[in-house]
Simulated scan of single mutants.
Amino acid sequence: MLDIVTASEWFGSEFGRPIIIGGPCSAETREQVMSTALAIAEIKEVSIFRAGVWKPRTRPGNFEGAGNEALEWLAEAKAATGLKMAVEVATPAHVEAALKAGVDVLWVGARTVSNPFSVQELAAALGGVDVPVLVKNPINPDIELWIGALERINRAGCKKLAAIHRGFYPFEKRGLRNIPRWEVPIELKRLFPNLPMICDPSHIAGKWELVQSIAQQALDLDMDGLMIETHINPSVALSDARQQLTPAQLSEMVGSMSFPTSTTTDTSFARCIQTLRQRIDSLDAQMLELIAQRMKIAEEIGRFKLQQNVTILQVRRFEQILKDRLEQAEVIGLNHEFVKNLLEMVHKESILRQEAIMRSSGPGERKFPC
């Protein structure tokens, strides 16, 4: 388990849910930072201003941030607006400079999280630091790597921790910049229920037009906040121009979104939900019983195959199963990909059980054909 405090304890009871963080991908100039911060400060739902000071670029020659000078701009914006300031850190030197400048929140980027050596160096620099540290998911959907980064920083004494879901790098071009793989942050939330989970819809969307739908989906999945890239004039932004909103667009977006809660005091709602959940529990029990019966039949088939020295894998048979079941799934309104994945998992387990039967057979137990 992680030894952490709740997000509401970070800055006091006035720091509510959802946490909304807004600001440009990069701090580019004093004027850009100040004008963006002043506009964002007018949006009451936003409590933290974010800006990249040191930018890890994939290839040299791109804008890599304004560096330490930008920390002065953030300090001025903080004094003028009262917003908390957040920056990304990738080295111990970044941590030292950011804390010296009075930065309120630090986050660790996806590239850094992907390298345990870098995370360990940051953890050592963060030892005893009493500021929130937000940890983005690694580039690939490796939940153990994500957990490892959280654990390293937590063991250094940082109790104000949160995770940021920013999606995972796609191997091929898709409609979204990053693949959401929502099941990964959901599993992390299941393992660590007290860990605040913030979504970065800007990096998942890759286009400002898609940010709101991704953000709403995150809130509907009970995530605790949003980090949204916002620039006073995205068309001239030096990095990630396509995915940044203007402060006016952010204000409109926040005003039109639904902010669902994880609990309610409505007793009639609670009764209805309880009844439906009981029905699900009953159906799940029946489903598991049917799967157990199916596995017993698969084992029986495995024993017949053993006697006749027949291969376990029967490709044509499985192809026919897929074809028949997927046609049936379409008729009853089940998702094609879901049913295909389910059948493949059941088939894999059937093969494993038949393999176990083959391995357990002793000399002379197989009946080979004449």
Score class of each variant (00 low, 15 high):
residue 293 Q to S: 15
residue 168 F to I: 07
residue 233 N to A: 15
residue 220 D to F: 12
residue 146 W to V: 03
residue 304 F to P: 02
residue 8 S to L: 02
residue 332 I to G: 06
residue 326 L to R: 10
residue 232 I to R: 00
residue 306 L to W: 07
residue 139 I to K: 05
residue 187 E to G: 06
residue 357 I to S: 11
residue 12 G to F: 02
residue 210 L to A: 05
residue 357 I to W: 13
residue 55 K to C: 08
residue 249 Q to N: 05
residue 219 L to N: 03
residue 305 K to F: 14
residue 144 E to C: 05
residue 91 T to K: 03
residue 259 F to R: 00
residue 221 L to Q: 06
residue 350 S to Y: 04
residue 314 Q to E: 15
residue 277 R to D: 14
residue 258 S to T: 10
residue 239 S to E: 14
residue 16 G to N: 07
residue 75 A to D: 02
residue 28 E to N: 06
residue 119 V to F: 06
residue 134 L to P: 02
residue 319 E to F: 08
residue 325 R to N: 04
residue 24 P to W: 02
residue 332 I to H: 05
residue 269 F to D: 13
residue 302 G to I: 05
residue 5 V to W: 04
residue 186 I to C: 15
residue 347 H to S: 12
residue 101 A to E: 10
residue 326 L to T: 08
residue 26 S to W: 08
residue 180 P to H: 02
residue 25 C to I: 07
residue 97 A to M: 11
residue 174 R to I: 11
residue 85 M to I: 03
residue 25 C to K: 02
residue 351 I to Q: 08
residue 43 I to N: 01
residue 215 A to H: 02
residue 159 K to L: 14
residue 63 F to K: 07
residue 202 S to G: 12
residue 45 E to S: 01
residue 312 I to Y: 01
residue 90 A to F: 10
residue 218 A to L: 11
residue 354 Q to C: 04
residue 256 S to T: 14
residue 344 E to Q: 08
residue 44 K to F: 03
residue 85 M to L: 13
residue 162 A to W: 00
residue 320 Q to N: 13
residue 237 A to H: 04
residue 236 V to C: 07
residue 343 L to V: 10
residue 255 G to E: 00
residue 122 L to A: 15
residue 95 V to K: 03
residue 328 Q to I: 15
residue 130 D to K: 07
residue 152 R to Q: 14
residue 206 G to M: 11
residue 355 E to R: 10
residue 72 E to F: 07
residue 197 M to F: 07
residue 51 A to D: 03
residue 77 A to W: 00
residue 282 S to F: 07
residue 224 D to R: 01
residue 102 G to S: 07
residue 88 E to I: 10
residue 271 R to A: 08
residue 214 I to L: 04
residue 327 E to Y: 10
residue 202 S to P: 12
residue 145 L to G: 04
residue 82 G to T: 03
residue 61 G to I: 05
residue 367 K to R: 13
residue 344 E to S: 12
residue 236 V to G: 05
residue 121 E to Y: 15
residue 367 K to F: 13
residue 318 F to G: 05
residue 263 T to K: 15
residue 188 L to V: 12
residue 127 G to D: 10
residue 40 I to M: 01
residue 161 L to P: 01
residue 205 A to R: 00
residue 37 A to Y: 00
residue 219 L to F: 08
residue 120 Q to C: 06
residue 30 R to Q: 03
residue 317 R to C: 09
residue 358 M to R: 14
residue 3 D to L: 12
residue 340 K to I: 11
residue 171 F to G: 06
residue 181 R to E: 12
residue 280 I to H: 08
residue 29 T to Q: 04
residue 183 E to R: 06
residue 263 T to N: 11
residue 260 P to F: 01
residue 120 Q to A: 14
residue 114 S to D: 09
residue 57 R to T: 09
residue 170 P to K: 05
residue 238 L to P: 02
residue 93 A to W: 05
residue 175 G to S: 10
residue 211 V to H: 06
residue 42 E to R: 02
residue 307 Q to W: 11
residue 275 T to M: 12
residue 315 V to R: 13
residue 148 G to L: 04
residue 1 M to W: 12
residue 170 P to T: 11
residue 110 A to E: 13
residue 244 Q to P: 11
residue 219 L to Y: 09
residue 337 E to V: 05
residue 217 Q to H: 14
residue 45 E to Q: 00
residue 60 P to V: 11
residue 66 A to Y: 09
residue 208 W to P: 02
residue 10 W to E: 03
residue 345 M to P: 04
residue 62 N to D: 08
residue 158 C to H: 07
residue 266 D to W: 06
residue 365 E to I: 14
residue 250 L to K: 00
residue 362 G to F: 15
residue 319 E to Y: 10
residue 293 Q to E: 12
residue 11 F to C: 11
residue 216 Q to N: 09
residue 164 I to V: 07
